[in-house]
């Protein structure tokens, strides 16, 4: 049943981005919907935001979501970038709180290694399979 409630909540979040009834009301942090003044920093922040998964509306990145939690997370990312933190450190900061799940980009270690190696391995496999097709010049 609790799962159902959560599912229902998740569905509500998807269909009803800012329903006042279901999500309460409070101030949105300033940096959630304002850019940083420095374009280079904003660009770095934007990349981080696109690589983080929204906690409430599970399929979207926090950059594409209207959920309040996504707004809070955007503000946090921009604040940390403004404070001079490196993008990867911010990703780690989020992972420390929500686990690997929150990052859309698995690390190149452990179980993620195979994932990142896949393109190259597949390309090699395909070339290996295709090599018999060709005839040498006669």
């Amino acid at each position: 049943m609790r799962r159902l409630v959560y599912l229902a909540c998740a569905l509500l979040m998807i269909a009803q981005p800012r329903l006042s009834l279901a999500q309460g009301s409070g101030p949105t942090p300033e940096l959630a919907n304002r850019q940083l003044a420095d374009p280079a920093k904003e660009k770095a922040a934007s990349q981080v935001m696109h690589a983080l998964r929204c906690i409430q509306c599970q399929g979207q990145s926090i950059a594409d979501s209207d959920a309040p939690m996504a707004a809070t997370m955007r503000a946090e990312v921009r604040q940390q970038i403004a404070d001079g933190k490196k993008p990867d450190a911010i990703r780690q900061w989020m992972i420390e709180r929500y686990g690997e799940w929150v990052s859309f980009e698995p690390d190149m270690k452990g179980s993620g290694l195979l994932l990142w190696a896949a393109p190259l391995l597949l390309l090699l496999l395909a070339l290996f399979m295709a090599r018999g097709l060709f005839r040498r010049k006669s």
Binding site: H50, A51, R53, S61, G99, E100, W101, V102, S103, F104, E105, P106, S111, G112, L115, W116
Partner: peptide, 10 residues
């Protein structure tokens, strides 16, 4: 037993 996401960056 691992909970990860694979998304646009990958």
């Amino acid at each position: 037993g691992d909970k990860i996401s694979v998304g646009p960056p990958y």
